[in-house]
Design a protein around this nucleic acid. Structure first.
Lengths: 130, 130
DNA sequence: GCGTCGTATTCGCTTATGCGAATATGATTC
DNA sequence: GAATCATATTCGCATAAGCGAATACGACGC
């Protein structure tokens, strides 16, 4: 990445990492709080945060603060071609078994009547009306 | 890259470089000799060769030897999703002005009645009947 | 065989990327 | 204001990627 001018290479660099693909897949059409991402991916919070920053720079996610919590949602990259490719990538992820499992896990965790202790007070992901 | 198992990250790593995108774009639906790629991209031969090796490892090109010359053509990556994404990428490149210019230049050079000196004996790119 | 041509690889080097650990920031609660 | 919670950033290090220069390889021509 590194460069400021938007180009396709930046998009592909952002996508060239397993953790980031999993994040994109998990966020999907919802707006998801960081703490859920940390919980589902069973990864350290700084690592998740850094990868989210990477995705922000590539302009494929946007963040919204709500009190202590940060919510992330996917966004269309500015370049038209990049946007088309990104949609195709999301479709691919959604059909990939390995990534489906992550989404199912998020579903299970956030829809359970009892959230795990570390998420007790966290705002649950919300679907975005497309 | 580095890993052997085929996955999406490998594809994106391969695409995350300007020179490689230009190579993919230049090869397009034809089979192109390395010497043309070197000539059009005005880059050193070892650099082109290394990037082609990278693309080979990502399984998006295949090479064919003909005497002293190596011909490269694009190929569908093995994974179905990767293949869909790759097609989308190719379409995007074909519509991008910056990349169009490269193709026009290749067209001009290889269709000229007189090839430049360093390409005098080189086999011209040939279109592939899809 | 020897030289040459087209291409591929290796060798140092520099820069970029990813990581865990520690620390900083920003908002909330008391 | 102090403590705490959720998140972001910095630091130091290890590994990977990209580059030019030099070299190796493989096929051809003599």
């Amino acid at each position: 990445m590194a460069k400021n001018k938007y180009n396709l290479e930046n998009l592909f660099s952002a996508l060239a990492d397993r953790t980031r693909l999993r994040l994109i897949n998990l966020i999907g059409d919802s707006e998801v709080c960081v703490c859920f991402l940390v919980e589902i991916l069973k990864t350290s919070q700084p690592k998740i945060s850094r990868h989210l920053a990477y995705l922000r720079r590539a302009r494929v996610v946007t963040a919204r603060r709500e009190g202590k919590w940060m919510h992330y949602r996917l966004t269309e990259p500015p370049d038209e071609h990049a946007a088309r490719i990104f949609r195709e990538v999301r479709t691919s992820l959604s059909e990939h078994p390995e990534f489906e499992r992550d989404r199912e896990k998020l579903e299970r965790v956030c829809c359970a009547t009892q959230l795990p202790i570390q998420l007790r007070r966290a705002p649950r992901p919300v679907g975005i009306a497309a």
